[in-house]
Design a protein around this nucleic acid. Structure first.
Lengths: 200, 200
DNA sequence: CCTACCGATCGGTAGG
DNA sequence: CCTACCGATCGGTAGG
């Protein structure tokens, strides 16, 4: 955040983006004003427009720069595992744990979907899709036949879904429900993803 | 919506709520003005305040009135099924299908989480929790031992998660990805929930 | 249920 | 990078 290799202007830009990210996460896009962003960044309103042409562009950069796919894709491409079960367990654990350190990243996604009607999703998809297919194929190979009943696109979508499943149910239940809804939930969710809820 | 048993004032109120719901879903809370709501409802701004004390209260009522738990809970309490597998398959199918007819209901949830910081969630949880436990216990009984590895709270949370998993991955992928990501996804997701991605 | 208004704040710009 | 400003719009109210 305060990287010494950045020029003065670049540092100001990062300060602005950091302030904007926090405010958008807390208040949404239309709930956050350019004056609040400038104030939180410690500059005047007019100076903000020296770095970004308008408010929508500030959000676009915040959304793309902070999207978790930037850590998720490399993480999945390098995840270890001798068989499919340990691979999935390994990858999912590291993935969901890494996202626990990113409070509010889902809020940016919600803002994107509601207040921008998903206008930046195709930009995101184009960047992620080829690598997602690569990961899916690696999983199928590693599965040695144990994944053959599931088409690769559904495999990708359900893996993406596992993450929403765990994270959104926690977002809703954690603040209001008793601890039994959280304890060991991460491992339980991965078990269910691998083997289902039913004992055969 | 145009129920003849409603009084004139009640009909106006419903018209307002209908207009507000549409606008909130499309533009978010702070992105929608009281003037837009009044205009879409065909009344003057001042008249709006004859029915609701302020904007936040309009959202609160829209959020609670349109929340899917109102149909989901009765649906799950009456779902048929002789064994646990057909019960889950039945309930999940009907549940996810019924939500397909409610475009945008997730947007209200996103607004609630971002722009209201989940202020109304505890009100919701208090209404749903007892019935959710009842449903979970019915599932365990029906499972005849095949669900005993999973604590009931995790069963509830993962069932809630199944819904987020399917719906959010579709929200993101459907507009940008090829049809293979959608075809048969509903049944595939339920299969994975029941039996996992792995063939033993 | 409407008209007409309030002070406050919005996104953005000029000009230096 | 700042000050000072623009027109437009905001949530809400008075008064009838």
């Amino acid at each position: 955040m305060s990287d010494e290799s950045l020029s003065r202007g670049e540092r100001t830009r990062e300060t602005i983006l950091d302030a904007a990210r926090q405010l958008f996460i807390q208040q949404g896009y239309h709930g956050t004003s350019m004056r609040q962003i400038a104030s939180q960044a410690g500059i005047a309103l007019g100076s903000l427009y020296n770095h970004f042409p308008n408010k929508a562009e500030v959000f676009r950069v915040v959304f793309i720069d902070n999207h978790p796919y930037r850590e998720i894709v490399p993480l999945l491409l390098t995840a270890e595992g001798d068989d499919i079960e340990s691979f999935v367990r390994n990858a999912a654990t590291r993935l969901l744990r890494s996202l626990d350190n990113r409070p509010g990243f889902l809020n940016l996604m919600f803002i994107e979907l509601v207040e921008f009607n998903g206008a930046h999703i195709s930009e995101l998809f184009a960047a992620v899709f080829p690598q997602a297919m690569e990961i899916a194929q690696r999983m199928v190979r590693l599965g040695q036949g144990r994944l053959d009943t599931i088409p690769p696109p559904i495999l990708i979508r359900s893996f993406l879904g596992l993450f929403f499943s765990y994270y959104m149910s926690g977002l809703i239940l954690d603040p209001v429900a008793s601890p039994e809804f959280s304890e060991g939930a991460l491992d339980q969710f991965i078990d269910i993803y691998l083997h289902g809820i039913l004992v055969d």
